[in-house]
Amino acid sequence: MPLDHFNIAVPQGKLEDIITFLTTSFEPLGLKEIARPVPTVVGFGEKTPYFWLNVADLKEVDSKSHEAVLKSQHIAFTAATTEEVRQVHAAALKAGATCNGPPGIRAYYHPGYYAAFVVNPVLGINFEVICHDDASR
C-alpha cells in the first residue's frame, strides 16, 4: 500500500530554518510549502501536502533525546531523472548540508538505483534523493 503522508516533529526554534532548507534544496523536484493550517504545522508537496513538519513540545521530551531521534531519521525523495538527483544534491550542499554520499549508482540495491545523500544542517536528518531508472541514461 502506498504511503499517503508523514510528519516530523521539530523544535520551535528550528522550524523556519528547516522550511528554508527544504524549499531551497528540493525545489528541483517541485517540493514547496503547500499548507500552514496553524503557525506550528507546515505541509509540503508538489500539488498536495504529504510531508509535514510540526513543532514538538520539548517539555515532554528532553531536547537531547529528540535530537538523537531526528539524527537517526532517513527520508528519501524520488526524482524523475539523474539530473534532478544532481541538482538537489548541489542545492542542498549550497544550503549548508553535508554530503553523505555523492550522486551515483548504488547497484547493490538494484542496477538502476541512482542516488545522493545529504545531512541537513538544521536537524541532522539524512536526506536521500533517488532515481530508480532514468531512461535517458
Rank of each mutant, 00 (worst) to 15 (best):
T98L: 11
A76N: 04
V85M: 09
A116N: 11
G45I: 04
G45R: 00
A68S: 14
V41Q: 08
V55W: 02
V41A: 05
P39A: 05
A116M: 11
Y113N: 05
L70R: 01
E67K: 07
L58F: 08
N120Y: 00
Y114S: 02
V69Q: 06
P121E: 10
A115I: 04
P39D: 07
Y109R: 11
V41K: 03
E60V: 05
S63M: 05
H66G: 12
T48S: 03
P102M: 07
I105C: 04
K47Y: 10
G124M: 10
Y114Q: 03
E46K: 13
L93E: 02
T40E: 14
T78D: 08
H89C: 02
L70W: 00
H89Q: 01
P121W: 12
V85W: 11
L123W: 01
F51E: 06
F51I: 01
Y108S: 14
A92Y: 05
Q73A: 12
H66F: 15
L93C: 05
E46Y: 01
A116F: 07
E84Y: 01
A76M: 05
G96F: 08
E84C: 06
A91E: 04
Q73Y: 11
G96W: 08
F51L: 08
A115Q: 03
V119L: 15
S63H: 04
V85Q: 11
P111D: 13
K47E: 15
F51Y: 06
A116D: 11
H66Q: 13
Y109H: 15
P121K: 10
S65F: 08
N120E: 15
G45M: 02
I75R: 03
K47W: 08
S63G: 03
A95M: 06
E67Q: 15
G101V: 00
K47R: 15
G124W: 00
K59E: 13
R106Y: 01
W52D: 09
W52Y: 12
Y50V: 00
A76H: 06
P103Y: 01
G124I: 12
F77T: 07
A76F: 09
C99T: 15
V55E: 07
A76L: 11
V55I: 13
A90Q: 14
V41G: 01
T81H: 04
V38E: 12
V88I: 05
A107W: 05
V119E: 15
S72T: 07
T82S: 05
H74G: 12
T40S: 14
Y108H: 14
I75H: 06
A56M: 14
A90H: 06
P49E: 02
A79V: 14
G101I: 01
V122E: 09
G101K: 06
